[in-house]
Write a protein that binds this DNA or RNA. Structure first.
Length: 511
RNA sequence: GGGCCCAUAGCUCAGUCGGUAGAGCAGCGGCCUUUUAAGCCGUUGGUCGCGCGUUCGAGUCGCGCUGGGCCCA
């Protein structure tokens, strides 16, 4: 971090550009003006006059439309007494054509002091060049801001992944598809919100800092509140608070926000990630399935324009209905395991040992089924598939199945080999819920520090009456990965967590 | 946590068997009034991630560290 009084690193490029900035000032220009002169956006002009048939050069010249557009200078081609440049704004480009005879003073001098990366506004009539490219015939240049540092290479862009994540702005400037991916992400989130609102859901906000982290089995981040003298946890899930709202009388609520889990990083995991959770009073798991199918196919259509979208070498269909498979059937089918072996404790243990699952003897049957599912099936679930009938040990907040209290009414949705969503017929019996928490506490005592903590206030809320409720969480980052065909979660999170390059980059508050 | 791979100019990348550090783009100085990665001539720019070691000599070999990537758990 640059501190006041500490000179910036000397740099060949910066020195030259600072000198040019001085010369621009000497021409009498306001080099850092407050506002850009602009009558049109670049995208707006590009769209309106894209059709070269309808708008040949003569037509444009007759129109005599004088426009002012602003943009970052991305390319400069000098041709003696004429110069071509590309200006970019919001991922769209337009060409500016400068000639000595067209330019008002001191335009030509300003042009000579331009560098790639600078911001300018150009004013003049629209025209089409010999090769048919829509351009502004520039009569006037307004200088808007100087880039002191050079852009990455124009043809290859910025390739170094580390630098792309650390200096995402350079990635966005120089790699066009990256900007497009993040624009798409915004549209996806917006479409999800619109869909939920259309279904009558209300968006709410619940605490990100919680005294007891609940709602998921995951290690939390700890922070401290000075005035209250207490530790707080960044939430691993909003679930227990959203359920309190159902108790309070909300019928349909959802929240799109960050969760924080103190776990490793991978192509599919970032410690902070975006989740949508929704709860609907009176509904159950089947309703959540229908909602999910409808949501994904609607968003795929509305944002991406199709229900069939590429995923690596494959094509994923988001058309309803999705596949449905019980966890045991998935293990049997994808693991080529005889179905009846999954009903018997000893044979499940044998199967688990055969694929090198750890601590087989310490684990319960249900936990081992979960492990076997992960091992055999998860990565192979490419087309959208609801996996149902989860073991109760893995699901402390879920109602049991009718007629079999070892399993619960839960699904996880898998697409592209990734877990995308997790939904329950929510457990609403406070006595049962208390027992489930007790089982989690026992697990914690046995050394599982991901087991859930007892939230007595949550139990109390249930004791005031909780209707049958369908609830679900959808991983927004992974959903964006799928829809935009991005292989890593870091490609859909603007600023993924990175280790600082040097320890002293973290500012020292004692200074 | 384990395995494999990567780090060389602002950027993209070469660098053979261990023997004086290279190209393209960008920059700088020229030429060029319809270019599209414009072209042509000339030219500046290096803590080869950091440290230790082996060697007459290390970008290159070995060990350690830092940062990143991929796979596995």
């Amino acid at each position: 971090m640059v501190r006041a009084g500490v000179p910036m690193q000397p740099n060949q490029y910066r020195d030259v550009r600072l000198e040019k900035l001085g010369k621009l000032k000497a021409l009498g220009l306001d080099v850092w003006p407050r506002k850009a002169k602009r009558t049109h956006g670049i995208a707006q002009l590009a769209a309106a006059y894209a059709d070269a048939e309808a708008w040949p050069n003569e037509q444009l010249e007759d129109l005599g439309l004088a426009v002012s557009v602003m943009g970052r200078v991305l390319a400069i081609r000098e041709m003696g007494k004429s110069v071509f440049a590309h200006l970019t704004e919001n991922g769209e480009k337009i060409q500016a054509f400068f000639r000595t005879n067209d330019l008002a003073e001191p335009g030509w001098d300003v042009l000579k002091l331009l560098d790639m990366g600078d911001f300018i506004s150009v004013t003049g009539p629209l025209m089409r060049t010999k090769t048919g490219e829509l351009s502004v015939r520039v009569k006037e240049i307004q200088f808007l801001g100087k880039a002191l540092l050079p852009l990455p290479e124009k043809w290859h862009g910025l390739q170094d992944k580390e630098q792309r994540y650390r200096q995402r702005y350079l990635d966005l400037i120089s790699n066009g598809e990256v900007l497009k991916t993040f624009q798409t992400r915004s549209r996806i989130v917006s479409a999800v919100r619109r869909f939920m609102e259309d279904q009558g859901y209300l968006e709410v906000e619940t605490p990100m800092m919680q005294p007891i982290p609940g709602g998921a089995t995951a290690r939390p981040f700890v922070t401290h509140h000075n005035a209250l003298g207490m530790d707080l946890y960044l939430r691993v899930a909003p679930e227990l608070y959203l359920k309190r709202l159902i108790v309070g009388g909300f019928e349909k609520v959802f929240e799109i926000n960050r969760n924080f889990r103190n776990e490793g990083l991978s192509a599919r995991h970032n410690p902070e990630f975006t989740m949508m959770e929704m709860y609907e009073a009176g509904s159950d798991l089947r309703d959540m399935m229908a909602l999910t199918e409808n949501l994904l196919s609607t968003v795929a259509r509305d944002v991406m324009g199709s229900e069939q979208l590429p995923w690596g070498e494959q094509v994923i269909s988001y058309a309803a209905p999705f596949h449905r498979l019980t966890m045991k059937d998935a293990i049997a089918g994808y693991g080529h395991v005889e179905r009846h072996l999954l009903e018997d404790g000893e044979s499940v243990r044998t199967l688990a040992r055969s694929v090198f699952i750890e601590d087989v003897d310490k684990k319960t049957l249900g936990t081992l089924l979960g492990d076997l599912f992960e091992h055999h099936a998860e990565k192979q679930l490419i087309q959208p598939t609801f996996i149902t009938d989860y073991p109760i040990e893995l699901s402390p907040l879920t109602k049991t199945l009718d007629g079999d209290d070892r399993f619960v009414d839960r699904f996880e949705l898998f697409i592209g080999g990734m877990e995308i969503a997790n939904a329950y017929s929510e457990l609403n019996d406070p006595v049962d819920q208390m027992g489930r928490f007790q089982a989690q506490m026992d697990e914690r005592d046995a050394g599982n520090d991901e087991a859930m903590l007892l939230d007595q206030d949550f139990i109390t809320s249930l004791e005031h009456g909780f209707p049958p409720t369908g609830g679900e969480g959808i991983g927004i980052d992974r959903m964006v990965m799928l829809l935009t065909n991005s292989a890593s979660i870091r490609d859909v999170i603007l600023f993924p967590l990175m280790r600082p390059t040097k320890p002293n980059e973290v500012s020292d508050t004692t200074e």
